[in-house]
């Protein structure tokens, strides 16, 4: 309990520090409504993808194929949105086409999740290798589907998802919060959630306790796939296009954000609340630096530094707690 709390409190302190520093450096711009809104448009993409990564990490696995899944799912959506009817047809702007495209895209993401689950649960391939292979394979399928080109030009309904707001709250933010709420519900309020945490700490003992480990793994990677598919909706809508290699740099960032949020690299521990704070910290740094006109790449470096800093602080606290325990 002490350990979990302490990670959360370190995060809170870092978050407050990030706000104050960015405020101090950028002046009132940072605390403006406009800046908060733009942050709220940017955070959800990485946020939903991080949820997809997090659930795999909780089972002491990893899902390297989330970005490739999102791209494939987004490409399928984009193909349906742009290629099912001739451009002059009225149907191409129908909201029902958007619904159909999204559902098909999500179905693709679910199928990918099923395949990942099969590779990991049934064939017993380690998650990192199974999803690495899937990442490369799916990237290839996306390339073949698109010939390596960008598919762009969606209907206003589709664009609204990524770019409109509802009562001042950007739609992507609403989607992210819904996903985070859903994830939190699964982890804290369903038998599956308890099993995920238990499995992540000791799959053998779970097996001997009558937990159907295969089912847990299948569901984990299907949920991970669904989140990837939802991220795809936000991504293609915001970019107004889909492509085989969008967002590849997000992959390692999702691991970074999850670990920063307190998800244990060894599995079994991690909460959605920590993850949200971690995403907010990363977004604050990014937006603050952006306002100061500092390169995005400096943001990357700073994110890496913050991660190592938090891990070191955690290590020092752990060591002290251990010493107290021994004494």
């Amino acid at each position: 309990m002490f350990r979990k709390l302490s990670h959360f409190s370190i995060l809170l302190i870092v978050m407050v520090a990030a706000i104050l520093i960015m405020w101090g450096l950028t002046g009132t711009d940072f605390m403006s409504l406009g800046n908060f809104q733009s942050m709220a448009y940017q955070l959800p993409e990485l946020g939903v993808l991080t949820l997809a990564m997090m659930i795999a990490m909780l089972t002491s696995g990893i899902n390297l194929s989330i970005i490739a899944t999102a791209n494939l799912s987004g490409i399928v959506m984009a193909l349906i949105l742009t290629k099912t009817f001739p451009p002059e047809s009225a149907l191409i702007n129908s909201p029902w086409l958007v619904v159909g495209a999204i559902l098909t895209g999500l179905l693709v993401a679910i199928i990918v999740g099923l395949i990942n689950g099969f590779l990991i649960a049934v064939l017993d391939i380690s998650p990192i290798l199974a999803t690495l292979g899937m990442m490369i394979l799916l990237g290839g399928v996306s390339l073949v589907l698109t010939d390596g080109y960008v598919i762009s030009g969606f209907s206003p309904t589709m664009l609204a998802i990524g770019n409109k707001d509802w009562l001042g709250i950007p739609v992507p933010m609403i989607i992210f919060l819904a996903c985070a709420g859903f994830m939190s519900l699964i982890l804290n309020k369903t038998p599956l959630g308890t099993r995920i945490y238990m499995f992540g700490s000791n799959p053998v003992a779970c097996f001997y306790s009558g937990v159907n480990n295969k089912v847990v793994l299948f569901r984990t990677y299907i949920i991970s796939g669904i989140f990837s598919g939802i991220a795809a909706i936000i991504m293609i809508s915001r970019f107004n296009s889909a492509k085989a290699d969008y967002g590849e740099s997000y992959l390692l960032l999702t691991i970074l954000a999850a670990v920063l949020g307190g998800v244990s690299a060894a599995g079994g521990f991690g909460k959605v609340s920590g993850l949200i704070i971690s995403l907010v910290i990363l977004q604050m740094i990014s937006s603050g630096l952006n306002l100061m006109g500092i390169s995005n790449f400096f943001t990357l470096a700073l994110w890496g530094i913050v991660l190592i800093f938090v891990m070191i602080v955690k290590y020092v606290i752990d060591i002290r707690a251990q010493k107290r325990w021994n004494a």
């Binding site: 308890t194 099993r195 945490y197 238990m198 700490s201 003992a205 779970c206 306790s209 079994g268």
Partner: peptide, 19 residues
């Protein structure tokens, strides 16, 4: 290694079979 998920709570270990 087989009986208990050692690093998780007593409570979760008790309810895992009947959850």
């Amino acid at each position: 290694s087989e009986g208990l998920v050692n690093i998780q709570s007593v409570g979760d270990n008790i309810i895992i079979t009947t959850i």
